[in-house]
Amino acid sequence: MEERFIRQTVLPQVGTSGQEKIEKAVVTVIGAGGLGCPVLTYLVEAGVQQIRIIDCDVVGLSNLNRQFLHTTQDINKPKVQSAAEKLQQLNPQVRLELIDQRLTVENMAELIGAPDVVVDCLDSIAVRLLVGEYCLRYDIPLVEGGIKGFYGWVTTINRKTPCLACLGYHAEMEETEIPVLGTTAGVIGSLQANECLKLILGAGTPLTGRMLHYDGLSGSIDEIALQINPNCPVHSKLC
């Protein structure tokens, strides 16, 4: 057993076979920003070797309060490239596919592909909804997370469980320049990475059918049970 992973392979939920699952898993991470940085870091450090990263942005100065894979030297560099340079150092065995393109309805299948898990780290509700529709249609487990200020949420979605459209998220909710503390992104991104690893390992109980809500101001975590909406525009198209 490789020494690099010894502190996790001693866990009964991981072990040699779990580590093999992690190393064989294929994950697409959409967004290499506030959530993407912790997600990518923990997936690579856990030993996930095949990761596709999608992000069409370049690094900007106002990203650096939270996006720790990018540094002052990376300003104006494509985020996928900047992230990849650090991730390769974290684990040189990682095989990253970098996609420096904007996701659209037309290129969704080509860009996301058919991974074992998609982790959505986007800042756009409209594109999140498209990603959700794609993942449900092709039955790819999706880990969603969102942040604002001191608050964030995480939920895991599959065909049999409520999606963001079920809850009433719609494209007009779009906000830009969303205020956020770096630590909020760190907490929620770490929880998303944890969900992704759980799905790969088949360990624990996924956050399906429930939303975990983090409140960094009061220092508390709540959970709310979710139900599929019979009128959901995504779910109603599936059957």
Binding site: G31, G33, G34, L35, G36, D120, C121, L122, D123, S124, I125, R128, G145, G146, I147, K148, Y151, G152, W153, P162, C166, L167, G168, Y169, M173, E174, E175, I178, V180, I224, A225, L226, Q227, I228, N229, N231, C232
Partner: peptide, 29 residues
């Protein structure tokens, strides 16, 4: 707005025992 975990509108009827969850937009990444 969710009533017992299911999407609702602001004019959906409530009944005794309902759990109402209310969220602002939180969609940053």
């Amino acid at each position: 707005t969710l009533i017992n975990g299911r999407h609702s509108k602001l004019d959906t009827s409530l009944k005794d025992g309902d759990l109402v969850a209310i969220f602002p937009p939180v969609g940053g990444g």
